[in-house]
Amino acid sequence: MGLKMTEQTYLVLLSLADRPRHGYGVVQAVRELSDDRVRLGAGTLYGVLDRLVGAGYAEVSGEEVVDGRLRRYYRLTPEGTSAVTQETARLRALAARAQRVLGARPALGGA
């Protein structure tokens, strides 16, 4: 099933790549991965999680109650792992091409 890979979607997928996380854990991981640039609100987070679960890229792996609050953990499915791997490869290739373009640019102030 296709899924539009926005930056937020990619970051949420990436945050679940190493281990299952609960909602707030995803928010924190995305913040770290994006170098404090992307701060997910709850509305955005659950919109992304809904789409990932609907596409079969993520699933619930368990629940626990901490300080009276329900924490539901999510993990990637094999399809989700494959999608985030492919997207990372695409971004790596894009970065490499960008590096070549920038490297070929004449140095500023040069003759």
């Binding site: 609960h22 909602g23 707030y24 928010v27 609100g41 709850a42 987070l45 609050r69 924490r71 539901r72």
Partner: peptide, 12 residues
């Protein structure tokens, strides 16, 4: 999802 989202919002 209400209980789960309430927990996330409280932590945020």
């Amino acid at each position: 999802r209400a209980d789960e989202v309430t927990g996330v919002l409280a932590e945020i």
